[in-house]
Amino acid sequence: MLDDRARMEAAKKEKVEQILAEFQLQEEDLKKVMRRMQKEMDRGLRLETHEEASVKMLPTYVRSTPEGSEVGDFLSLDLGGTNFRVMLVKVGEGEEGQWSVKTKHQMYSIPEDAMTGTAEMLFDYISECISDFLDKHQMKHKKLPLGFTFSFPVRHEDIDKGILLNWTKGFKASGAEGNNVVGLLRDAIKRRGDFEMDVVAMVNDTVATMISCYYEDHQCEVGMIVGTGCNACYMEEMQNVELVEGDEGRMCVNTEWGAFGDSGELDEFLLEYDRLVDESSANPGQQLYEKLIGGKYMGELVRLVLLRLVDENLLFHGEASEQLRTRGAFETRFVSQVESDTGDRKQIYNILSTLGLRPSTTDCDIVRRACESVSTRAAHMCSAGLAGVINRMRESRSEDVMRITVGVDGSVYKLHPSFKERFHASVRRLTPSCEITFIESEEGSGRGAALVSAVACKKACMLGQ
């Protein structure tokens, strides 16, 4: 009897593995994704193909990295998701002549009506938060230079001027797309009239992360975010950046690689679950690469896999709870928690219980395998993109072996128990001629924006502006 049951459990697990095998990517698959990513990057950089390229390769006008001589107080704003952060950054000489960066910050959550109302409502709310922060720190009387981390696709015309191309991540505030974001912020500050600010720089969160990590390690020339969304930036040779005049030196390019796949480059790798996630998203047909990796989508992918296993009578005796059938019910943090389970399955059992399920031991094991399959594919897909960037940098610099540091931020990278190990191992397999160091950014977005502002202020002083 026991043997029969054991055989049935083994057969069930084997069927589960057959279904989950769809998520496995072979090294040849990853090399294919990497080569296609490089081709799209090239198209994004070139003037004649930029418009139709899915990977936009947006110039950021960040050319210099901090040298350690900029000092002063800077205000930093960070808008990239449902939370908005205001930070005071003091850049100065530390002990023994070292450079020191001290920060104080406060988080504000953005109400739904500000995210989806008008641009005026959104930026009025942001300036209200700045006003509140300055009151708390008794700094209303000071006109501070301000660095703005704005983590949406922007076409820069200068370091302090950028046109919002399109909202992502659930934002829909009308009247912002096609307009200068810094102008919208300046107008809102003017409307309030109770404080003055000098907006000197606007950067993407990947750029802010790279600059913040450069402060720790001067070989950091790539910034990457794996959180709600997924994106990367890197220092490109100016001669390859056709959208900006000049051939000397390097400029940081914001790849906006989340949109890779929007022209069909990933079609052969998309599964039924991916198509369902895409169809029910706020932007169907867009940001397809990001939807395979980002935390906004990972939990939902797992939920759809679990429903398939229920329908195949391989999980929960073929019956799903009402909660499990509800879109968004299986949160991405559950994926991390399930994979963090120590082996007694308590954590998995508790999560499934909150979803109205009474799982068996085998159910718990199957749910864990589903989570591992989805998150491992995410790590491997992400590795193909980064390997594409790094191999490109090595080739354009004609280096036999390139040493490089990548600064990384984002909740999936930082909080998932195995993502970074799987990701690092896969990147290294795909970049055999590179020695890569990964560092995690601390308060990256805010500190990085302030350091970019410090560079901009120093330049302005040198130019006598």
Rank of each mutant, 00 (worst) to 15 (best):
L2G: 12
D4M: 11
D4G: 12
R5V: 08
R7M: 15
R7P: 12
M8H: 15
A10F: 15
A11C: 15
K12V: 15
K13T: 11
Q24C: 14
Q26A: 06
D29Y: 08
K31E: 14
K32E: 03
R36S: 05
M37C: 01
Q38I: 05
K39R: 05
M41C: 05
M41E: 03
G44F: 00
T49Q: 14
A53S: 13
A53R: 14
A53E: 04
S54P: 12
S54I: 10
V55Y: 05
K56T: 04
M57F: 02
M57Q: 06
M57S: 06
M57V: 06
L58W: 11
Y61S: 02
Y61P: 01
V62A: 02
V62W: 00
V62S: 02
R63A: 00
S64F: 12
T65P: 00
T65V: 09
E67H: 04
E67S: 09
G72V: 00
L75Q: 00
S76G: 05
L77Q: 01
L77K: 00
D78H: 09
G80V: 10
G80S: 14
T82E: 07
T82M: 06
N83E: 08
N83A: 11
F84V: 10
F84N: 02
F84Y: 03
R85T: 11
M87R: 05
V89E: 01
V89H: 01
K90P: 00
V91P: 03
V91S: 06
V91D: 04
V91W: 05
G92C: 11
G92A: 05
G92W: 08
E93C: 11
E93A: 09
G94F: 07
G94H: 02
E96H: 13
E96L: 12
E96T: 10
G97I: 05
S100V: 11
S100R: 05
S100K: 11
S100N: 12
K102C: 06
T103S: 07
K104F: 05
H105M: 13
M107I: 10
S109L: 11
I110D: 04
P111W: 08
E112A: 08
A114T: 15
M115L: 11
T116G: 11
T116F: 12
G117T: 07
A119W: 08
F123C: 13
C129M: 02
F133M: 08
L134N: 06
D135K: 06
D135C: 01
Q138P: 12
Q138A: 08
M139L: 10
M139I: 04
K140C: 05
H141S: 06
K143S: 02
L144A: 04
L144F: 14
P145M: 01
G147Y: 00
G147R: 05
F150H: 15
F152Y: 14
P153V: 10
H156D: 07
H156K: 14
E157P: 14
I159D: 07
D160R: 11
L164V: 14
L165N: 09
K169F: 15
G170V: 13
G170D: 14
F171D: 11
A173V: 04
A173K: 03
A173P: 06
S174G: 06
S174Q: 01
G175W: 05
G175P: 06
A176D: 14
A176E: 07
A176C: 08
N179C: 12
G183C: 09
G183V: 04
G183F: 09
D187C: 01
A188S: 07
A188D: 01
K190S: 15
D194F: 14
E196G: 05
D198S: 02
V200E: 00
M202D: 01
V203C: 01
V203Q: 00
N204E: 14
D205P: 07
T206H: 01
T209N: 02
T209E: 05
M210S: 01
I211N: 01
S212Y: 10
S212V: 07
C213V: 02
D217L: 01
H218S: 06
H218G: 03
H218I: 11
Q219A: 15
E221C: 08
G223S: 07
G223E: 00
G227S: 03
T228R: 06
G229C: 14
C230I: 13
C233S: 05
C233I: 00
Y234V: 05
M235E: 01
E237Q: 04
Q239C: 13
Q239K: 05
N240C: 08
N240R: 02
N240T: 01
V241I: 05
E242G: 01
L243S: 15
G246N: 00
G249Y: 03
G249E: 02
N254W: 11
E256W: 12
W257R: 00
D262F: 10
D262N: 13
S263C: 11
G264L: 08
G264T: 13
G264F: 06
E265R: 08
E265Y: 02
F269V: 04
L270Y: 07
L270M: 04
L271P: 07
E272G: 02
D274E: 12
L276Y: 15
L276T: 15
V277W: 07
V277E: 06
S280V: 10
S281D: 04
N283D: 13
G285E: 11
G285A: 14
K291W: 07
L292H: 10
L292W: 14
L292Y: 14
L292G: 12
L292Q: 14
I293V: 08
I293E: 08
G294D: 15
G295L: 15
Y297T: 11
M298C: 09
E300A: 06
E300G: 02
V302W: 04
L304S: 05
L304D: 06
L306M: 15
L307E: 09
R308D: 05
R308L: 05
L309W: 04
L314K: 12
L314I: 14
L315E: 00
H317Y: 09
G318L: 04
G318N: 09
A320N: 07
E322H: 14
Q323D: 07
Q323H: 05
L324W: 06
L324C: 07
R325N: 09
R325E: 02
R325T: 08
R325K: 14
R325D: 06
T326S: 10
T326I: 10
E331T: 15
Q337E: 09
V338P: 00
G343R: 01
K346C: 12
I348L: 05
Y349V: 03
Y349L: 04
Y349E: 08
L352G: 01
L352N: 03
S353C: 05
G356F: 09
D363N: 01
C364F: 03
I366E: 04
R368C: 04
C371S: 03
E372Q: 02
S373C: 08
V374P: 01
S375K: 04
T376A: 13
R377M: 00
R377P: 00
A378V: 07
A378P: 01
A384S: 07
A384G: 06
L386S: 06
I390C: 08
I390K: 00
I390R: 00
I390L: 11
N391V: 09
R392G: 08
E395S: 14
E395C: 12
E395D: 12
E395G: 03
E399G: 05
D400V: 07
D400F: 02
V401Y: 05
M402K: 08
I404S: 04
I404G: 05
T405Q: 00
T405A: 02
V408S: 06
D409Y: 03
V412R: 11
V412H: 11
Y413Q: 07
L415A: 03
H416P: 15
P417V: 10
K420V: 12
K420W: 12
E421T: 13
R422T: 14
F423S: 04
A425L: 13
S426F: 06
R428I: 12
L430K: 05
P432C: 12
S433P: 11
E435K: 12
T437W: 10
F438P: 02
I439N: 01
E440I: 07
S441R: 12
E442Y: 14
E442R: 05
E443D: 12
G444F: 15
G446A: 13
R447H: 10
R447S: 14
A449P: 08
A450G: 14
A450W: 15
L451D: 10
V452R: 06
S453P: 11
V455F: 09
V455A: 11
A456Y: 04
C457T: 13
K458N: 13
K458H: 15
K459C: 13
L463V: 10
G464L: 13
Q465E: 15
Q465F: 15
